[in-house]
Nucleic acid binder design. Structure first.
Lengths: 352, 352
DNA sequence: CTGAAAGCGCTTACAG
DNA sequence: CTGAAAGCGCTTACAG
């Protein structure tokens, strides 16, 4: 019941293992007769070459690794899908790992991918300067950063220029009369967390909005932290009239919290989120998003990785972002400021 | 720049490769002195054992494969997350593949997983009797089916008993006065597609609702097919007053299509979906779902796989489902039947 | 066009 | 406790 080896195929075909190998790998230095018999034998035995043995001998494994920050985040699920399709078209299979926004889990997966000798890695990195990222670079393993980068690590990257999108968002809110915008930031350990906050701060200044540091609360890109951020923003003496979340999951947490308090989004308070995922347009009310193309990002990442694997040194790619206004923010600022209402006595189900 | 091998470590430590191997794999037959020097040398050289070589020599690779039907489906994204965490706790790393609801892509990934000699595979199978599934079984590779099964293939499985949930859903709709329920079925090539349709049909009979076969339209579990299904249901002489979709993505497609036509969900028509994902409660109106625990499913799948890998023959696991009523269906049937309205002149963005 | 041989990087009986 | 040797399943110069 042990799987057939190339020796079994060779024996059945009456040739040497070397010839069998040549036939099966498409080496032209084979006779038609040998080809026919080896191919027949391989089919007969349902032969599947042992990829480990092959990779051990060759320099390549025809596989790449993709490490996303969180598969449950629709942005990364879409990214995984796009990268997978693009890689498949180029003849590579993708091994997908999920860091779950944890640096430790990222290290574990990257070690595994390194050990399995993937030909290259696309990673949306957690934290800065984790040991496994350093290993990747030190070994010269072809690597591309996607969505996020790590400062001081010189690796080609595909990122979003958050500036335009956030400037449009703040202009949009200012235009509707908002002065105090609560900002739910990503973690400062993520480059996207830092960049989006910086872009937001610049945009506030440009439009002369309130730069009160109490309006900025840091989350971790996951839903629960969005709820927590809203709780603390509502405790301010002067709560914001608009909330801007640095990703879709924190926005969802924020929306849930606001609903529990009976605060009406699109009436009492405006909500805007970075990222623009399919569900936003179906929400109640439809959520304003800052869109950037996950499809373009995934395809560019694969293109860059193939270039790096070919020994090139491709330029980084920077993709645009832009506001997609919807009902959650498309209204004039309410006359009276938002007042925090005590949460209902029966707790609602939390996002898991 | 080539990665260090165990020979390099052994040389630096002044021992044989055999001893280095023993130390690094925790074999107790090693002297404290050897341990200290080998460990130091390994750290010095940042040694990462070549997993391919190790797996070639040992019988196991400490990795499992998980093949999901569609990563962009939140149900499977959550499943991937749960399986990954449960496997990690048991010391296994998960290689995730995405079939994208394509039997061909499934075969490609399964071949890759087989070639890489994963220790076991958890698969939500596409179609019935694909060649790669047959290979899995023929080779005795530990396999567990999750969510879906393949008829005639005797493999332990973790599935949802859709009967209770669908019976509750139909009872709920009947109780609100609906007689004609449009059913957007999953593909007949998926066991879940067949089972849910059968359960729905039984429930209709139980409650004496209209069994008109024109009320059943088949989709492919992806969003666009939900939109298409609604289009054809609305063309019926007597269109349904309620729509039941066999998964969340088709429900989303249905919702979009209804909105484009100006048909009000929760007022003109009821919508219910199999699966109950986080976004449903945030939609406009909140969507009634049929819930089953993805967490329980993922953990059970890992538990069963570990049992199979240990040579056991675990019993299949069948998980319950139940209705979670929300505003999309919690209203009395409208006095006048739904009338199809022509779509708006400006086409809206479609789910990608 | 073909085969014998060496080797990819590990691990593991087998002696000692 | 340790080392020399064999071997996991492939591929690829090297001869012929």
């Amino acid at each position: 019941m042990d799987p057939a080896t190339i020796r079994d195929v060779a024996a059945l075909a009456g040739v040497s293992a070397a010839t069998a190998s040549r036939v099966l790998s498409g080496n032209p230095a084979t006779s038609p007769a040998a080809r026919a018999r080896v191919e027949h034998a391989a089919r007969e035995l349902d032969f599947r070459p042992n990829a480990q043995a092959r990779a051990l001998r060759r320099t390549r494994s025809d596989s790449i690794g993709l490490l996303v920050s969180d598969v449950r985040n629709p942005f990364f699920a879409d990214l995984a899908h796009t990268v997978e399709q693009a890689a498949l078209e180029a003849g590579y299979v993708t091994l997908l790992g999920n860091a779950n926004e944890s640096e430790q889990q990222q290290d574990r997966y990257l070690d595994t991918l390194i050990s399995r000798r993937v030909d290259g890695v696309i990673v949306a990195p957690q934290g800065d300067g984790s040991s496994s990222i350093a290993t990747l670079v030190a070994r010269g393993i072809p690597t591309v950063f996607v969505d996020r980068t790590v400062p001081g690590v010189d690796v080609p990257s595909v990122t979003t220029d958050s500036d335009a999108g956030l400037r449009e968002a703040v202009a949009h809110l200012a235009g509707h009369g908002h002065r105090r915008v609560g900002y739910i930031a990503g973690p400062p350990t993520a480059s996207t967390g830092r960049e989006r906050l910086a872009a937001h701060t610049r945009a506030l200044a440009e439009h002369g909005l309130d730069a009160d540091p109490a309006l900025v609360v840091s989350g971790d890109f996951q839903a629960a932290s969005g709820s927590a951020a809203v709780r603390s923003l509502l405790e301010l003496a002067h709560p914001p009239t608009a909330i801007l979340a640095a990703d879709s999951l924190m926005a969802v947490g924020a929306v849930r919290q606001l609903q529990e308090r009976g605060i009406r989004i699109g009436v009492d308070v405006a909500v805007v989120a970075f990222d623009d995922i399919e569900w936003f347009s179906l929400m109640n009310p439809p959520l304003t998003g800052i869109a950037h193309s996950v499809e373009a990002m995934g395809r560019a990442a694969v293109r860059l990785l193939l270039a790096v694997m070919a020994g090139e040194r491709p330029d980084p790619v920077r993709l645009p972002s832009s506001l997609v206004p919807r009902a959650s923010s498309d209204f004039a600022v309410p006359a009276r400021p938002v007042v925090a209402v005590p949460p209902p006595s029966t707790p609602r189900e939390q996002p898991s």
